[in-house]
Structure formats: C-alpha cells, structure tokens
C-alpha cells in the first residue's frame, strides 16, 4: 500500500515535503495507526503522537486524505491510495504529523471547563435527576482530539479569538449542566463578535468528529439561550 506522508523536521529541513512510502505487509482489519507503526519500523525518524490506540485518548488525530480523523480507528481498507497523511491544518507543526496544540488548549481553558458552584459545598455529592443527566449526553464524550476545531475555517482565520467548536461544545456542556451556577457569567464571557459568533454554521466540525458529536448544535443552543436571556 502506498503512502504520501508530510515530513518536516525544523532542525534539518528548510521546508516541509511529502515522502512517498510503501507498506508491503498489509493485513486485513488493519487500522491506519498499525500501518504508521509499521512504517516507523522502516524509517524511525517518522514522528506522530499515539497512545491508547482505540479512539479514546485522541492523540493520533491527523489529516487523512484531506479529512481530519483518528488514525487508530480509521480502517486501512477505507482509504484510497496513495494515502495522504498531513498534520491537522491550522496549527503550528512541531515535527512531521505532530502539531502544537497550545492554542487549542488555551481556548478550551477559556470556557472554564469545570463546574462553578456558588452555594456551600453539599455534604453529599451534587445530585442530578436522570433527565438532567441526559442533557449531558453528546457533550461529555468529547476527547479533545482537535479534529473539529482544526477543520473549522473560522478557527483557521481567528484561532486566537474564536473559541472553536471543541471549546464551544464544552461551553454548552457546562451551561447545560443542572449543577452549574454560572450561566450568566458564562454567557457574558461568550458575547462579542469573536468568541462564539465567528461560527458560520459551516459544519465541518460535525462532519469530522470521530466520536459523532455535534458542536454546531451545541453552538446553536448557546445562541438561543443567550437570546432567551436577553429578551
């Protein structure tokens, strides 16, 4: 199987280039990450992140044949040849397929991704009804792989100002949480022309999310809650 892989080592290379590689021993039910690990045997300078190898940690997010995804859950037989592998777009490349996610994590931090509770801490846990807990389904599953935000043109143009779909999904995750008591503060922090309202409903985020989540829907819910509170 033929691969065309983005290579860039800032210590050695003047500019990035695409390296052609061939993997002879392709087995059935092999995932892309298995192929990358085999290719690393051929050329051990090939660099990429990986950890859990089962779509839980989100480390091996990359651009696969033009579409962001996780290498560990992408079957090789679903890909056309040559398989073009590039780092996720829009973020600075550290080396080969490894990108600097600092900007992405900073935007995640900006939405205060934790419960804010002003009441005294209860003696038992903060309780939720099953219906209240259901509100978090489709939100808490995010693994922060970055596939969505780096597929979003609005995030490419304004990565420092627009929070991006991943962070906004988490913003709604805490707005939708019955235990959180900072709705007003959270909404106020999302106001302005950039943080939330750079989303133009392009929906690349929904298209590429490896966990099947829907950040666009979450963003819509934030806007409607904002509208409801302002009227």
């Amino acid at each position: 199987m033929r691969f065309s892989i983005y290579r860039y080592n800032p210590d050695v290379d003047d500019k990035p280039y695409m390296q052609e590689m061939v993997l002879e021993d392709v087995r059935n039910e092999m995932m892309l990450l298995d192929a990358l690990l085999a290719l690393k045997q051929q050329d051990e300078s090939l660099s990429f992140r990986r950890s859990c190898q089962e779509g839980v940690c989100g480390s091996d997010a990359m651009n696969i044949n033009g579409r962001n995804g996780l290498a560990c859950i992408t079957p090789l037989d679903s890909l056309s040849e040559p398989v073009k592998l590039r780092p996720m777009p829009g973020l600075p490349v550290i080396r080969d397929l490894i990108v600097d996610m600092s900007q992405f994590y900073q935007q995640y931090r900006n939405v205060k991704p934790y419960l804010i509770v002003h009441d005294p801490v209860p003696e038992v846990e903060h309780k939720q009804s099953p219906a209240q807990r259901d509100q978090l389904d489709g939100l808490y599953e995010c693994i922060l792989c970055g596939c969505c935000s780096t597929a979003c043109p609005s995030f490419w143009w304004n990565p420092d100002k627009f929070l991006g779909p991943a962070a906004l999904l988490q913003a709604w995750r805490f707005l939708a949480d019955s235990r959180d008591q900072a709705e007003g503060q959270r909404l106020q922090e999302l106001e302005g022309p950039y943080r939330l309202f750079r989303c133009h409903t392009i929906m690349n985020c929904v298209d590429v999310c490896p966990k099947g989540l829907n950040p666009t829907k979450a963003i819509g819910k934030i806007k409607h809650l904002m509208l409801k509170r302002s009227i």
Partner: peptide, 9 residues
C-alpha cells in the same frame, strides 16, 4: 460587545 455579537446575529 453585546451589539457586535448577539444583536447583529
């Protein structure tokens, strides 16, 4: 900021 975000949207 409010005018620029929610209101224009």
């Amino acid at each position: 900021r409010r005018v620029q975000g929610l209101r224009l949207w």
